[in-house]
Design a protein around this nucleic acid. Structure first.
Lengths: 220, 220
DNA sequence: CCTCTTAGTGTATTTATTACACTAACCTGT
DNA sequence: ACAGGTTAGTGTAATAAATACACTAAGAGG
């Protein structure tokens, strides 16, 4: 069977990381064409022989050099005018990485690549501003009822690190004692036995997530 | 700009209704081709000049004669082998209707059309079984924190009607007094002043939703 | 007027959430 | 060695939310 003319199918990937106390997303600056100078999500067309998930994984690796991270489908954007160059539909995904995973490919096709604070986005191409805002909301709500924070932290971390991730993404401060109580109660983490010394203060116990795959948990 | 070959873009719409105490979905029986005899969701290709939402609305009207109902994007399914006739990506939507809205178009292209209990699905074409199951889960979870039940009930209804919709979709019974307490507390509904008499028992007060557009409310 | 059926109502118990302030451990500088 | 600075770590009381539970009310029909 041969299908008639149809919009192009692309995927765009929101790669989130918490860096220096800010929720950041990896953006690429477009080097030519009508969107020259604007920033965009890493993305690309879906090939005939790959699933949507596979396309997103490929883009993640090609554009950000990232493998084995958390990835989930976000939403599909299909406004007629979302790309002035032609009709396309974009299946947006979001990925979570911690600083360690990041190893961006640099090519001269792009004018730039870098982490941008989601609260201070630069001028963006296509409908990508909307996509980022949508993704931030989804991320915040998933944080409350799943363990996906594991994907944003290194294998070992302190409870203060963990709390800070929650605070940055939710955009509000949390009570230290109540936070710790809840985290322990739902058995989100376990002690690793070692400590971290960071200077002129009391050393902190290090923890690891008890599960390193997505699980539903009532965290907050 | 001209895009290279890309999967076809379709939308499929899950049309839910609660009928005779069962959560049902409107399905069409395919009349020819490799999926002949199998049941499928109403769907079709997205046209070049319409957004995804518009395509879903068009299908809703063309296939089910339904207008002005609740509609929301569900998920996009894009496995390579989801349609044996060729590579396609399907943006699934779900719609909520009450019995009144239903006025299906009958065409001889289809071998049949009808409401099917989501707990007893017939043999389904494509990946549509997966799509329905995904949609049922989403619907159940949205019921708990939004007022979308309004779209499944007529303008006036009793609190028992409402509770029954919740019970059918959640798949468990709810305590009558606690349910009513919560519903009133969050001001989900208001009395209309009239009553419904249904035979040999006490008449029930009729209620209407205080909001007839999607709103976030902590119902349960 | 008795029986059947569905509608409608309140309270006590348990559980979860919130608010809140001090001590512990370590480093540094004197 | 000890004082000052900094982050880690801990418990309890008050409030709010969720749950469990059983009887009376209103109508129809015989």
């Amino acid at each position: 069977m041969h299908f008639p003319k149809s919009p192009a199918v692309a995927t765009d990937v929101l790669i989130f990381s918490v860096l220096e106390g800010k929720l950041c997303v990896l953006l690429i600056q477009i080097g030519s064409g009508p969107y020259k100078g604007k920033w965009a999500l890493p993305g690309g067309l879906v090939e005939m022989k790959e699933t949507l998930d596979e396309a997103a994984l490929r883009i993640l690796e090609e554009k950000a050099g990232v493998r084995g991270v958390y990835l989930e489908q976000l939403y599909t954007f299909g406004d007629v005018d979302r790309d002035v160059r032609g009709r396309s539909v974009s299946v947006a995904y979001f990925a979570l990485v911690n600083g360690d995973h990041y190893n961006p490919r640099t090519t001269d096709y792009y004018a730039g690549i870098g982490w941008k604070d989601v609260r201070r986005l630069p001028a963006m191409a296509f409908d990508h501003k909307k996509v980022v805002e949508f993704g931030v909301k989804r991320l915040a709500s998933k944080l409350a009822y799943s363990n996906i924070a594991y994907a944003l932290l290194p294998r070992e971390f302190t409870l203060s690190d963990l709390q800070s991730v929650y605070e940055v993404i939710l955009g509000r401060t949390l009570d230290k004692r109540n936070f710790r109580k809840k985290i322990q109660e739902v058995k989100l983490v376990k002690e690793t036995g070692s400590m971290r010394r960071t200077g002129a203060n009391r050393p902190a116990k290090l923890y690891a997530f008890s599960q390193s795959r997505p699980t539903l948990v009532d965290v907050l």
